[in-house]
């Protein structure tokens, strides 16, 4: 029953070493784009931009941003209020000692309590804070291995299109009152196709 601090510390060290190992600069991060958009034919340019627009409608939605807060507190609800009860990020983005994310959130939504759940339920690291960023800034952060957990473009696409916590946004369940949570404004399949299309067409981020 008792847990020592040792495993937690070693996990934290491991995470630390991983992020050090992938310590790219922002410039290197931008180089993940395979080609300059200007080299693409006009039609493909248009498709890329459309894909980007579709993708960002999702990534700027509260189902995503609520757990990418800029500070110490998760947000929740359709109005993105600060999480009830003063819930905190904690040292590993999973909460504090006796108030872990997993204290309430399990691997699936709980239909009785209305508590949402998905594997690895946690906050995005502070480096990936999206709260207060515009869509351009969010897109840049996704593409920057220095802060995105060292993900390559391929890994980023995989995360955005396959990770269960990300895809939870389309199965957000009901809230405590039994009211269904709002889904992102784009259907899941269309979003996944858009992410892939955007990546295939150079993962270009528009300037405005």
């Amino acid at each position: 029953m008792k847990k020592t601090l040792l495993p937690i510390l070693s996990i934290m060290l491991l995470i630390g070493s991983v992020s050090i190992g992938f310590g790219y600069s922002e410039k290197e991060g931008e180089e993940l784009s395979r080609s300059s958009v200007n080299e693409l034919p006009q039609q493909e340019q248009n498709e890329s931009l459309a894909a980007f627009n579709t993708m960002m409608k999702v990534l700027t939605h509260k189902r995503c941003v609520n757990c990418h807060p800029a500070g110490d507190r998760p947000h929740q609800g359709e109005d993105s209020h600060v999480h009830n009860f003063g819930v905190r990020r904690g040292p590993d983005n999973h909460g504090v000692a006796a108030l872990r994310c997993e204290t309430c959130h399990q691997e699936e939504n709980n239909e009785f309590s209305g508590v949402p759940g998905a594997p690895e339920w946690s906050l995005a690291p502070l480096s990936m804070a999206w709260e207060g960023l515009n869509r351009i800034e969010i897109a840049k952060s996704i593409m920057n291995p220095a802060i995105n957990g060292g993900r390559s473009l391929e890994e980023t696409v995989k995360h955005l299109t396959e990770h269960e916590l990300v895809l939870w946004a389309w199965e957000p369940g009901v809230d405590a009152d039994g009211t269904p949570r709002e889904k992102p404004p784009v259907p899941k399949e269309k979003y996944i196709a858009a992410v892939k299309k955007w990546a295939e067409t150079g993962a270009h981020i528009p300037t405005e």
């Binding site: 029953m1 008792k2 847990k3 009830n84 009860f85 006796a98 108030l99 872990r100 997993e102 204290t103 309430c104 399990q106 691997e107 699936e108 709980n110 009785f112 309590s113 209305g114 508590v115 405590a176």
Partner: peptide, 27 residues
């Protein structure tokens, strides 16, 4: 409350605090 909001149902699962009203028994 049955909503993991009040904490009255807190118990330990493998030493971790868990609000059992919102924890399916399969876990």
């Amino acid at each position: 409350c049955g909503k993991a909001a009040c904490g009255a149902c807190t118990l330990h699962v493998d030493g971790e605090a868990v609000r059992s009203c919102s924890y399916a028994v399969k876990y």
